[in-house]
Simulated assay, not measured.
Amino acid sequence: MKYEWIDEYLLKMPGVSKDLQKDWNWIRYRIGEKMFVAICLDDNDKPYYITLKPEPLEGDFWRKQYEDIIPGYYMNKTHWNSVKADGNVPDDILMDLLEKAYRIVLESLSKKRQKEILGDAI
């Protein structure tokens, strides 16, 4: 996978956990029980897509900018995008998309849960 830094980058975010959803062969990154990023693995357990949650209009914008960003792989096509794991999306763009996916899901949690995750940072 081109984006070897993703695991370390995501796990540094407050409240993020990682697991393997065996039935789907996806490595999921979650805040509480809510997924915000998944690394979809192929039959040889190699990363195939990085699926993340954008705002719908922004997701559509990025799909028009990069051929390596497609509607969510096996996900709701409005609320998820997938980035080819060996694609040509610049690292800084992907980092921004990952950060925004984190914020979208974090902000969907109750204020109490956000405070538990972020402490006094909110």
Rank of each mutant, 00 (worst) to 15 (best):
P71M: 05
G59L: 01
W26P: 02
E33V: 08
F36E: 01
D43W: 02
Y3D: 02
C40P: 04
K12Y: 04
R103K: 12
N25L: 13
D45T: 13
L94I: 00
K84Q: 09
L97Y: 06
W26Y: 11
Y66Q: 03
D42H: 12
S17G: 15
V37E: 06
D91W: 07
I39A: 06
E116K: 02
M95Q: 14
G15N: 01
P71A: 09
L94A: 00
L109E: 14
P71E: 03
G119P: 01
K112M: 09
K18P: 06
I70T: 11
N25I: 03
K115S: 11
V105R: 03
Y3Q: 04
G119D: 11
I31Y: 03
D91A: 14
D120Y: 10
K53A: 01
A85P: 10
L106W: 01
L98Y: 00
S82Y: 02
I39H: 05
P71N: 04
R63L: 08
S108T: 14
D68P: 03
K22P: 06
P90T: 00
G59A: 07
R30I: 02
Y74A: 11
Y3P: 05
W26V: 06
Y74D: 08
K77V: 00
Y48S: 12
P54L: 10
R30E: 10
L10H: 06
R30V: 01
K84H: 04
D43S: 11
G72A: 14
L20T: 07
V37T: 07
N81A: 08
W62F: 14
Q114L: 10
A101H: 03
G15A: 10
K100R: 13
R113H: 14
D19P: 08
M95N: 09
R28G: 03
A121Y: 12
P71H: 05
L11C: 00
G32A: 03
K111Y: 04
L98C: 00
I122S: 13
Y9L: 05
Y9E: 02
E67C: 06
L118P: 00
L98H: 02
W5H: 09
D91S: 11
R63S: 04
N76C: 01
D120H: 13
I6G: 02
K18F: 04
R63T: 03
D19V: 05
P71R: 09
A38Q: 09
W80T: 08
L118M: 15
L10F: 06
E33I: 10
H79I: 00
S17F: 06
K22A: 12
P90V: 02
Y3F: 07
K22S: 13
W24D: 08
W62I: 11
A121G: 04
F36M: 07
N76Q: 11
S110C: 08
Y3N: 10
Y49M: 08
L109Y: 10
G119C: 05
V105E: 12
V89E: 09
L98N: 07
D23Y: 10
P56M: 14
D68Q: 08
Y102W: 00
M75V: 07
R30H: 09
E58C: 05
N44A: 15
V89R: 09
I39R: 01
I27W: 03
S17E: 15
N88D: 11
